[in-house]
Design a protein around this nucleic acid. Structure first.
Lengths: 177, 177
DNA sequence: TGCTGCATGTAAACAGTTACATGATTAG
DNA sequence: CTAATCATGTAACTGTTTACATGCAGCA
Protein backbone atom coordinates (compact mmCIF):
# COMPACT_ATOMS: atom_id res chain seq x y z
CA UNK A 1 0.00 0.00 0.00
CA UNK A 2 1.65 3.16 -1.16
CA UNK A 3 1.12 6.13 1.10
CA UNK A 4 -1.25 8.46 -0.65
CA UNK A 5 -0.31 12.03 -1.26
CA UNK A 6 -2.31 14.18 1.13
CA UNK A 7 -1.59 17.41 -0.69
CA UNK A 8 -4.59 16.58 -2.86
CA UNK A 9 -6.96 16.69 0.07
CA UNK A 10 -5.58 19.92 1.47
CA UNK A 11 -6.30 21.60 -1.86
CA UNK A 12 -9.75 20.01 -2.14
CA UNK A 13 -10.49 21.07 1.42
CA UNK A 14 -9.87 24.73 0.69
CA UNK A 15 -11.83 24.52 -2.55
CA UNK A 16 -14.87 23.14 -0.69
CA UNK A 17 -16.18 26.63 0.07
CA UNK A 18 -14.65 28.82 -2.64
CA UNK A 19 -12.93 28.68 -6.02
CA UNK A 20 -9.29 29.70 -5.90
CA UNK A 21 -6.07 29.98 -7.89
CA UNK A 22 -2.92 28.00 -7.13
CA UNK A 23 -1.26 31.05 -5.73
CA UNK A 24 -4.17 31.83 -3.42
CA UNK A 25 -4.16 28.23 -2.23
CA UNK A 26 -0.46 28.49 -1.43
CA UNK A 27 -1.03 31.64 0.55
CA UNK A 28 -3.97 30.16 2.45
CA UNK A 29 -2.00 27.06 3.40
CA UNK A 30 0.78 29.26 4.72
CA UNK A 31 -1.55 31.57 6.62
CA UNK A 32 -4.07 29.18 8.06
CA UNK A 33 -2.47 25.78 8.49
CA UNK A 34 1.25 26.37 8.76
CA UNK A 35 1.38 25.36 12.41
CA UNK A 36 0.21 21.84 11.64
CA UNK A 37 0.54 21.45 7.88
CA UNK A 38 3.08 22.69 5.36
CA UNK A 39 3.30 22.39 1.63
CA UNK A 40 6.03 23.72 -0.58
CA UNK A 41 4.85 25.96 -3.43
CA UNK A 42 6.33 23.59 -5.97
CA UNK A 43 3.97 20.82 -4.91
CA UNK A 44 0.79 22.83 -5.41
CA UNK A 45 0.74 23.45 -9.16
CA UNK A 46 1.55 19.88 -10.24
CA UNK A 47 -0.99 18.51 -7.77
CA UNK A 48 -3.68 20.82 -9.11
CA UNK A 49 -2.93 19.55 -12.59
CA UNK A 50 -3.37 15.97 -11.42
CA UNK A 51 -6.65 16.87 -9.69
CA UNK A 52 -7.89 18.41 -12.94
CA UNK A 53 -6.90 15.32 -14.92
CA UNK A 54 -8.77 13.13 -12.46
CA UNK A 55 -11.85 15.32 -12.79
CA UNK A 56 -11.82 16.30 -9.12
CA UNK A 57 -11.56 19.99 -9.96
CA UNK A 58 -12.46 22.06 -13.02
CA UNK A 59 -10.27 24.86 -14.35
CA UNK A 60 -11.28 28.25 -15.64
CA UNK A 61 -8.99 30.83 -17.14
CA UNK A 62 -9.38 34.34 -15.84
CA UNK A 63 -7.67 37.62 -16.66
CA UNK A 64 -6.99 40.61 -14.47
CA UNK A 65 -5.67 43.08 -17.04
CA UNK A 66 -3.11 41.06 -18.97
CA UNK A 67 -2.39 38.85 -15.96
CA UNK A 68 -3.44 35.26 -16.46
CA UNK A 69 -4.98 33.26 -13.64
CA UNK A 70 -6.28 29.74 -13.39
CA UNK A 71 -9.21 29.43 -11.06
CA UNK A 72 -9.99 25.98 -9.73
CA UNK A 73 -13.44 24.79 -8.71
CA UNK A 74 -14.20 21.52 -6.93
CA UNK A 75 -16.48 19.08 -8.79
CA UNK A 76 -19.05 16.65 -7.38
CA UNK A 77 -16.46 13.87 -7.75
CA UNK A 78 -13.98 16.07 -5.94
CA UNK A 79 -16.35 16.47 -3.00
CA UNK A 80 -16.82 12.74 -2.92
CA UNK A 81 -13.08 12.09 -2.95
CA UNK A 82 -12.58 14.61 -0.16
CA UNK A 83 -15.30 13.01 1.95
CA UNK A 84 -13.80 9.57 1.41
CA UNK A 85 -10.50 10.79 2.82
CA UNK A 86 -12.17 12.76 5.61
CA UNK A 87 -14.02 9.74 6.96
CA UNK A 88 -10.91 7.58 7.24
CA UNK A 89 -9.22 7.59 10.62
CA UNK A 90 -6.32 10.07 10.59
CA UNK A 91 -3.00 8.25 10.23
CA UNK A 92 -0.40 8.63 12.96
CA UNK A 93 1.89 11.46 11.98
CA UNK A 94 5.61 11.33 11.53
CA UNK A 95 7.16 13.63 14.08
CA UNK A 96 10.69 14.86 13.71
CA UNK A 97 11.71 17.45 16.22
CA UNK A 98 15.36 18.27 15.95
CA UNK A 99 15.28 20.31 19.13
CA UNK A 100 14.18 17.32 21.21
CA UNK A 101 16.67 15.11 19.41
CA UNK A 102 19.49 17.43 20.46
CA UNK A 103 18.13 17.62 23.99
CA UNK A 104 18.05 13.83 24.14
CA UNK A 105 21.74 13.59 23.22
CA UNK A 106 22.89 16.34 25.57
CA UNK A 107 25.43 15.60 28.32
CA UNK A 108 27.46 17.65 30.81
CA UNK A 109 29.92 18.71 28.12
CA UNK A 110 27.26 20.00 25.75
CA UNK A 111 24.81 21.42 28.29
CA UNK A 112 25.99 25.00 27.62
CA UNK A 113 25.24 24.63 23.89
CA UNK A 114 21.84 23.17 24.71
CA UNK A 115 21.04 26.10 26.94
CA UNK A 116 21.66 28.38 23.95
CA UNK A 117 19.25 26.29 21.87
CA UNK A 118 16.65 26.52 24.64
CA UNK A 119 16.88 30.29 24.72
CA UNK A 120 16.65 30.59 20.95
CA UNK A 121 13.65 28.33 20.93
CA UNK A 122 11.96 30.27 23.71
CA UNK A 123 12.34 33.47 21.70
CA UNK A 124 10.81 31.81 18.66
CA UNK A 125 7.92 30.40 20.65
CA UNK A 126 7.15 33.81 22.12
CA UNK A 127 7.08 35.28 18.63
CA UNK A 128 4.79 32.46 17.50
CA UNK A 129 2.51 33.11 20.47
CA UNK A 130 2.13 36.75 19.48
CA UNK A 131 1.22 35.77 15.93
CA UNK A 132 -1.29 33.23 17.19
CA UNK A 133 -2.92 35.80 19.44
CA UNK A 134 -3.21 38.30 16.62
CA UNK A 135 -4.69 35.70 14.31
CA UNK A 136 -7.13 34.71 17.05
CA UNK A 137 -8.39 38.29 17.35
CA UNK A 138 -8.67 38.58 13.56
CA UNK A 139 -10.65 35.34 13.33
CA UNK A 140 -13.11 36.38 16.01
CA UNK A 141 -13.67 39.79 14.45
CA UNK A 142 -13.49 39.10 10.75
CA UNK A 143 -14.15 35.39 10.22
CA UNK A 144 -16.69 34.31 12.88
CA UNK A 145 -18.10 31.79 10.40
CA UNK A 146 -14.85 29.78 10.56
CA UNK A 147 -15.12 28.19 14.04
CA UNK A 148 -12.97 25.18 13.14
CA UNK A 149 -10.11 27.36 12.02
CA UNK A 150 -10.33 28.99 15.45
CA UNK A 151 -10.41 25.59 17.11
CA UNK A 152 -7.20 24.40 15.43
CA UNK A 153 -5.59 27.72 16.20
CA UNK A 154 -6.43 27.43 19.90
CA UNK A 155 -4.93 23.95 20.01
CA UNK A 156 -1.73 25.33 18.49
CA UNK A 157 -1.83 28.19 20.96
CA UNK A 158 -2.17 25.88 23.95
CA UNK A 159 0.82 23.84 22.77
CA UNK A 160 2.95 26.94 22.28
CA UNK A 161 2.01 28.17 25.75
CA UNK A 162 2.98 24.81 27.19
CA UNK A 163 6.32 24.90 25.39
CA UNK A 164 7.02 28.37 26.71
CA UNK A 165 6.25 27.28 30.25
CA UNK A 166 8.42 24.16 29.98
CA UNK A 167 11.32 26.01 28.37
CA UNK A 168 11.22 28.80 30.96
CA UNK A 169 11.26 26.20 33.72
CA UNK A 170 14.19 24.32 32.23
CA UNK A 171 16.21 27.44 31.54
CA UNK A 172 15.73 28.64 35.11
CA UNK A 173 16.63 25.31 36.61
CA UNK A 174 19.84 25.03 34.59
CA UNK A 175 20.89 28.58 35.42
CA UNK A 176 20.95 27.78 39.12
CA UNK A 177 23.50 24.99 38.70
CA UNK B 1 21.87 23.83 -0.17
CA UNK B 2 20.66 20.27 0.07
CA UNK B 3 19.00 19.38 3.33
CA UNK B 4 21.33 17.05 5.15
CA UNK B 5 20.13 13.67 6.20
CA UNK B 6 19.71 13.70 9.96
CA UNK B 7 19.55 9.94 10.31
CA UNK B 8 23.35 10.05 10.43
CA UNK B 9 23.34 12.12 13.59
CA UNK B 10 20.74 10.02 15.34
CA UNK B 11 22.95 6.99 14.85
CA UNK B 12 26.10 8.86 15.90
CA UNK B 13 24.26 10.17 18.94
CA UNK B 14 23.44 6.71 20.21
CA UNK B 15 26.97 5.49 19.47
CA UNK B 16 28.44 8.31 21.59
CA UNK B 17 28.22 6.25 24.76
CA UNK B 18 28.26 2.64 23.53
CA UNK B 19 29.03 0.48 20.50
CA UNK B 20 25.95 -1.06 18.94
CA UNK B 21 24.66 -3.11 16.03
CA UNK B 22 22.24 -1.83 13.42
CA UNK B 23 19.45 -3.84 14.92
CA UNK B 24 20.10 -2.53 18.41
CA UNK B 25 20.13 1.02 17.06
CA UNK B 26 16.78 0.44 15.41
CA UNK B 27 15.31 -0.86 18.63
CA UNK B 28 16.70 2.03 20.66
CA UNK B 29 15.29 4.61 18.26
CA UNK B 30 11.89 2.98 18.54
CA UNK B 31 12.00 2.72 22.31
CA UNK B 32 13.55 5.98 23.30
CA UNK B 33 12.82 8.58 20.67
CA UNK B 34 9.67 7.44 18.88
CA UNK B 35 7.56 10.27 20.26
CA UNK B 36 9.70 12.91 18.58
CA UNK B 37 11.83 11.04 16.08
CA UNK B 38 11.16 8.07 13.83
CA UNK B 39 13.34 6.17 11.42
CA UNK B 40 12.33 3.24 9.27
CA UNK B 41 14.49 0.13 9.65
CA UNK B 42 15.41 0.28 5.98
CA UNK B 43 17.16 3.60 6.46
CA UNK B 44 19.45 2.44 9.24
CA UNK B 45 21.64 -0.14 7.50
CA UNK B 46 22.46 1.92 4.41
CA UNK B 47 23.17 4.97 6.57
CA UNK B 48 25.55 2.97 8.76
CA UNK B 49 27.38 1.87 5.64
CA UNK B 50 27.76 5.49 4.54
CA UNK B 51 29.01 6.46 8.00
CA UNK B 52 31.61 3.69 7.79
CA UNK B 53 32.73 4.84 4.35
CA UNK B 54 33.13 8.38 5.63
CA UNK B 55 35.20 7.15 8.55
CA UNK B 56 32.74 8.39 11.16
CA UNK B 57 32.27 4.90 12.58
CA UNK B 58 34.37 1.75 12.57
CA UNK B 59 32.91 -1.70 12.08
CA UNK B 60 33.74 -4.90 13.89
CA UNK B 61 32.36 -8.32 13.12
CA UNK B 62 31.13 -10.28 16.09
CA UNK B 63 29.64 -13.74 16.47
CA UNK B 64 27.14 -14.98 18.99
CA UNK B 65 27.16 -18.67 18.19
CA UNK B 66 26.85 -18.80 14.44
CA UNK B 67 24.93 -15.52 14.33
CA UNK B 68 26.81 -12.71 12.64
CA UNK B 69 26.64 -9.20 14.00
CA UNK B 70 28.23 -5.97 12.94
CA UNK B 71 29.11 -3.77 15.86
CA UNK B 72 29.64 -0.09 15.13
CA UNK B 73 31.90 2.20 17.13
CA UNK B 74 32.09 5.96 16.75
CA UNK B 75 35.48 7.38 15.72
CA UNK B 76 37.11 10.68 16.72
CA UNK B 77 35.96 12.12 13.38
CA UNK B 78 32.48 10.82 14.12
CA UNK B 79 32.42 12.67 17.43
CA UNK B 80 33.53 15.81 15.68
CA UNK B 81 30.82 15.48 13.02
CA UNK B 82 28.20 14.91 15.71
CA UNK B 83 29.33 17.96 17.65
CA UNK B 84 29.27 20.08 14.51
CA UNK B 85 25.64 19.15 13.98
CA UNK B 86 24.78 19.52 17.65
CA UNK B 87 26.03 23.09 17.84
CA UNK B 88 23.96 24.30 14.92
CA UNK B 89 20.60 25.80 15.77
CA UNK B 90 17.86 23.17 15.36
CA UNK B 91 15.98 23.69 12.13
CA UNK B 92 12.24 24.34 12.27
CA UNK B 93 10.48 21.01 11.91
CA UNK B 94 7.96 20.05 9.30
CA UNK B 95 4.72 19.29 11.07
CA UNK B 96 1.99 17.32 9.40
CA UNK B 97 -0.88 16.45 11.64
CA UNK B 98 -3.67 14.84 9.71
CA UNK B 99 -6.00 15.02 12.68
CA UNK B 100 -5.78 18.82 12.82
CA UNK B 101 -6.10 19.03 9.06
CA UNK B 102 -9.39 17.16 9.24
CA UNK B 103 -10.55 19.29 12.16
CA UNK B 104 -9.75 22.41 10.16
CA UNK B 105 -11.93 21.27 7.26
CA UNK B 106 -14.86 20.17 9.41
CA UNK B 107 -18.31 21.75 8.98
CA UNK B 108 -21.82 21.07 10.28
CA UNK B 109 -22.29 18.17 7.87
CA UNK B 110 -19.09 16.39 8.88
CA UNK B 111 -19.10 17.21 12.60
CA UNK B 112 -20.37 13.72 13.51
CA UNK B 113 -17.45 12.08 11.68
CA UNK B 114 -15.04 14.43 13.38
CA UNK B 115 -16.44 13.52 16.78
CA UNK B 116 -15.59 9.90 16.01
CA UNK B 117 -12.02 10.93 15.13
CA UNK B 118 -11.78 12.88 18.39
CA UNK B 119 -12.84 9.85 20.41
CA UNK B 120 -10.42 7.55 18.62
CA UNK B 121 -7.63 10.01 19.17
CA UNK B 122 -8.47 10.38 22.84
CA UNK B 123 -8.24 6.61 23.28
CA UNK B 124 -4.84 6.57 21.59
CA UNK B 125 -3.56 9.45 23.68
CA UNK B 126 -4.64 7.71 26.88
CA UNK B 127 -2.76 4.60 25.79
CA UNK B 128 0.29 6.72 24.98
CA UNK B 129 0.06 8.36 28.40
CA UNK B 130 0.16 4.99 30.12
CA UNK B 131 3.24 3.97 28.16
CA UNK B 132 4.94 7.26 28.97
CA UNK B 133 4.23 6.85 32.66
CA UNK B 134 5.64 3.33 32.66
CA UNK B 135 8.75 4.44 30.82
CA UNK B 136 9.14 7.30 33.29
CA UNK B 137 9.13 4.89 36.23
CA UNK B 138 11.60 2.61 34.46
CA UNK B 139 13.96 5.49 33.71
CA UNK B 140 13.96 6.71 37.30
CA UNK B 141 14.58 3.23 38.67
CA UNK B 142 16.88 1.68 36.11
CA UNK B 143 18.53 4.47 34.15
CA UNK B 144 19.04 7.38 36.57
CA UNK B 145 22.20 8.31 34.64
CA UNK B 146 20.07 9.31 31.61
CA UNK B 147 18.50 12.57 32.83
CA UNK B 148 18.07 14.00 29.33
CA UNK B 149 16.10 11.00 28.19
CA UNK B 150 13.81 11.67 31.14
CA UNK B 151 13.60 15.34 30.21
CA UNK B 152 12.46 14.63 26.64
CA UNK B 153 10.02 12.06 27.96
CA UNK B 154 8.46 14.54 30.36
CA UNK B 155 8.03 17.06 27.56
CA UNK B 156 6.22 14.41 25.54
CA UNK B 157 4.15 13.52 28.58
CA UNK B 158 3.08 17.12 29.15
CA UNK B 159 1.99 17.42 25.54
CA UNK B 160 -0.02 14.21 25.70
CA UNK B 161 -1.70 15.38 28.89
CA UNK B 162 -2.57 18.66 27.22
CA UNK B 163 -4.02 16.83 24.21
CA UNK B 164 -6.14 14.65 26.47
CA UNK B 165 -7.47 17.69 28.30
CA UNK B 166 -8.27 19.54 25.08
CA UNK B 167 -9.90 16.53 23.46
CA UNK B 168 -12.02 15.80 26.52
CA UNK B 169 -13.17 19.40 26.58
CA UNK B 170 -14.07 19.44 22.90
CA UNK B 171 -15.87 16.12 23.04
CA UNK B 172 -17.94 17.27 26.01
CA UNK B 173 -18.81 20.57 24.41
CA UNK B 174 -19.95 18.94 21.16
CA UNK B 175 -22.04 16.37 22.99
CA UNK B 176 -24.17 19.07 24.55
CA UNK B 177 -25.21 20.49 21.17
C1' DT C 1 14.32 52.55 -11.80
C1' DG C 2 14.01 48.98 -8.70
C1' DC C 3 11.56 46.47 -5.25
C1' DT C 4 7.81 43.70 -3.62
C1' DG C 5 4.07 40.86 -4.43
C1' DC C 6 1.20 38.28 -7.77
C1' DA C 7 1.25 34.23 -10.76
C1' DT C 8 2.69 29.80 -12.91
C1' DG C 9 5.52 26.35 -13.73
C1' DT C 10 9.77 22.56 -14.65
C1' DA C 11 13.84 19.49 -13.84
C1' DA C 12 17.01 17.36 -11.11
C1' DA C 13 18.23 15.63 -6.97
C1' DC C 14 17.31 13.57 -2.77
C1' DA C 15 14.91 11.42 1.05
C1' DG C 16 12.03 7.96 2.69
C1' DT C 17 9.00 3.97 2.62
C1' DT C 18 7.34 -0.46 1.21
C1' DA C 19 7.97 -4.80 -0.04
C1' DC C 20 10.86 -8.31 -0.53
C1' DA C 21 14.59 -11.70 0.67
C1' DT C 22 17.31 -14.56 3.78
C1' DG C 23 18.50 -17.11 7.73
C1' DA C 24 19.76 -18.04 12.97
C1' DT C 25 18.26 -18.46 17.83
C1' DT C 26 15.24 -18.88 21.69
C1' DA C 27 11.00 -19.61 24.34
C1' DG C 28 6.76 -21.97 24.76
C1' DC D 1 7.65 -27.64 16.14
C1' DT D 2 6.49 -23.16 15.46
C1' DA D 3 6.20 -18.47 16.46
C1' DA D 4 8.60 -14.53 17.79
C1' DT D 5 12.64 -12.12 17.87
C1' DC D 6 17.26 -11.29 16.35
C1' DA D 7 19.88 -9.82 12.35
C1' DT D 8 21.08 -7.78 7.80
C1' DG D 9 20.18 -6.12 3.64
C1' DT D 10 18.31 -4.57 -1.53
C1' DA D 11 15.29 -2.67 -5.26
C1' DA D 12 11.67 -0.13 -6.76
C1' DC D 13 8.81 3.36 -6.04
C1' DT D 14 6.96 7.57 -4.43
C1' DG D 15 7.07 11.95 -2.38
C1' DT D 16 9.27 16.28 -1.60
C1' DT D 17 12.39 19.95 -1.93
C1' DT D 18 15.57 23.02 -4.16
C1' DA D 19 16.79 25.69 -7.62
C1' DC D 20 15.70 27.62 -11.62
C1' DA D 21 12.82 30.20 -15.10
C1' DT D 22 9.49 33.61 -16.66
C1' DG D 23 6.82 37.72 -16.59
C1' DC D 24 3.04 41.28 -15.04
C1' DA D 25 1.39 45.02 -11.79
C1' DG D 26 1.75 48.56 -8.48
C1' DC D 27 4.27 51.65 -5.78
C1' DA D 28 8.01 54.71 -4.17
Amino acid sequence: MAKEKKTKYVLLGFLLTESLSGYQLGRLIREATSHFWQESDASIYPTLKILAEEGLVSVEEAFVGRRRKEIFTITAQGREAFLGWFKREPEPDIHREEFLLKLFFTDDKTEAEMQKHREEKLAKMRAALKLFEETEKMLIKELPHKPYWLETLRIGLAHVELDIALLTQQIERRRQC
